[in-house]
Design a protein around this nucleic acid. Structure first.
Lengths: 135, 135
DNA sequence: TGCCAATCGGAATGAAACGGTCCGATTAGC
DNA sequence: GCTAATCGGACCGTTTCATTCCGATTGGCA
């Protein structure tokens, strides 16, 4: 129930990016300097955010990143999933994984499903636009 | 945002314990057999649950565990915290830890605080009595 | 048109936490 | 007083995470 530090950094990075005017050039170096996140770490985080489709990247000199969607259309859940994978409290909730020996006879799974939806809903309800607000 | 497998087992174990009549003897072996959780793992999980005050333990022959409180007074959040420590998405939310270089100038922390409370609330709203229901 | 500098992308390394197992300490019952 | 059953804590292999570094790519300029 704890964020990995990379996901934590991703939230800070995305909030900084959202505060910039639309279409502005966002190099990893610029964001690193503005947020205080170490440059190599910012590079890795922004790379993963781009791979997940939250940022659009441009290579080469003069390249950089920009938000793929409006800040209001990106949720905290999206950012976390970009770095950590699907938000699923247990493996049995994530449809594609079936490595639990108890599955089939497990009597708590239906209830965990409800709890998981509640958690996920709480994270989806927070938009990047909100996170980027002054305070 | 994923439960460790020990916390996952803890939920299964506690649900099985709650289905037993109050005051019944609950040895780790019995619970392991009933739930399908490997015995050594059940021992470790129940030991930690006892250390956290959710179970009361009795040593020696004829010993075992019992619920420390009524099932309705134990929440999913309690069980998770017993195995994983405080529910805090980031270190800066957990009051006693201050190892984030950005702290003080961080502009997203107030918003994360709100999100964290929402997640924690969702988990506190699920009681062990609910988890123990037939389905 | 060729070179240079800036920037992203993926691989490698070291550390920390997790999961699982085993053995010793304790206690009721005979 | 002895035996058996049960909890409690220590140990180790494995995996994941966090961080760093170097190569691939591309626009700009002479």
């Amino acid at each position: 129930m704890r964020l990995t530090s990379l996901a934590d950094y991703a939230v800070v990075v995305m909030a900084a990016a959202a505060r910039r005017p639309d279409g502005a050039r966002l190099s990893a170096g610029l964001i690193a300097e503005e947020t205080g996140v170490p440059l190599p770490t910012a590079q890795k985080v922004m790379g993963r955010l781009a791979a997940a489709g939250l940022l659009v990247s441009a290579r080469g000199a003069g390249g950089g990143f920009r938000l793929a969607r409006a800040a209001g259309a990106i949720s905290l859940a999206d950012i976390i999933e970009a770095l950590e994978g699907p938000i699923a409290m247990t493996n049995c909730i994530q449809g594609s994984i079936h490595d639990c020996a108890l599955e089939g006879s497990c009597r708590v799974k239906p209830h965990l499903n409800i709890a998981n939806d509640a958690v996920r809903g709480a994270l989806q309800g927070v938009s990047l636009a909100t996170l980027a607000e002054a305070k």
